[in-house]
């Protein structure tokens, strides 16, 4: 028996070692350097909470936080109802059900960055595919600046919705399958129509599952930045700069418009702040949705 325990430690060790070294150590590293002035070379200088004072005064960061809010809200407002609707429709017995599910889920399997390249070619205002097609079919006369300062945020949201609906449809479908069929039959016997069944059986019983799915959707949409990085680099004029993209640029300045020096200490402080913001938003949502659930 004792020997078995030693074997168990041997088997857990690779996983534990990798997680501690490459998962936990970087967190501790950031927790330390967020109190330092450190730009990747020379000796780090301890500056206490100065980095956080700078975060508070950093207009670029807070405008990125605002953009993240718009991006996440825009994405969720369309994605959640749309995927719930598709799930409810495809949960019924009908022809072509699994075929349609497969089609709606397809966009979620591809790389966000590769699809961002494809969308760049599609939405490009100068010679993009979409503008060409819209002009050819006389829907518009002038090309629309999909990636211009006025529309870029909307375009990134459209792309995010495209990549997300299938995912949440699937999660909702899994939730819907947990609702016992008897309840629908009982409702039918009582003379309920489809809409009443939806309102009185599906939505209330889906409540807890829906709460989890929306929470997941919130955290994922606050964290997403890959496709925006490839599509617009946060531009034009920082209109699509979300907070995790701003953070990436602080640590790995690649573009000409970003500051050219690595900001490791300050970046750690910004990273910590973004994590707290995501955690805070999630917690607030959790509290509010729980209260709503209790009311029902």
């Amino acid at each position: 028996m004792k020997q078995k325990k030693i074997h168990a430690y041997v088997f857990v060790f690779p996983s534990l070692f990798l997680t501690l070294v490459f998962g936990i150590y970087p967190l501790l590293w950031a927790l330390r350097y967020m109190f330092y002035d450190y730009q990747g070379f020379g000796t780090p200088v301890f500056i206490g909470l100065d980095n956080f004072g700078r975060v508070m005064r950093d207009h670029q960061f807070w405008s990125a936080v605002g953009n993240t809010g718009i991006y996440a809200l825009g994405k969720l407002v369309v994605t959640i109802p749309m995927s719930l609707l598709l799930a409810i429709i495809l949960n019924r017995k009908m022809k072509g059900r699994s075929f349609l599910r497969a089609i709606y889920y397809l966009p979620t399997i591809f790389s966000a960055s590769v699809m961002a390249i494809v969308f760049f070619i599609i939405f490009n205002s100068y010679n993009g595919i979409l503008n060409q097609l819209l002009i050819r079919f006389h829907i518009i006369n002038e090309p629309i600046g999909w990636l211009s300062a006025d529309h870029a945020m909307m375009t990134t949201i459209i792309i995010a919705i495209w990549g997300a609906v299938g995912n949440y449809m699937l999660l909702f479908l899994a939730g819907l399958q947990g609702i016992p069929n008897d309840l629908y039959e009982a409702a039918s016997l009582d003379g309920a129509n489809e809409f009443q069944k939806l309102k009185n059986v599906t939505i209330p019983l889906l409540g807890p599952v829906m709460q989890m799915i929306i929470m997941l959707a919130i955290t994922i949409s606050l964290k997403g930045y890959e496709s925006i990085m490839v599509l617009t680099e946060g531009g034009p004029y920082g209109k699509t700069e979300v907070m995790y993209l701003y953070l990436f640029k602080l640590l790995f300045p690649v573009s000409a418009e970003a500051q050219s020096i690595q900001q490791l200490g300050y970046g750690s402080a910004v990273g910590f702040t973004t994590a707290v913001i995501v955690g805070g938003v999630t917690l607030v949502y959790f509290r509010i949705s729980k209260k709503l659930n209790d009311v029902y």
Partner: peptide
């Protein structure tokens, strides 16, 4: 490890 995310910061020590 699934829930905590400080984004690109971890890439530097890694």
């Amino acid at each position: 490890t699934l829930f905590i995310s400080i984004g690109a910061v971890v890439l530097r020590p890694q």
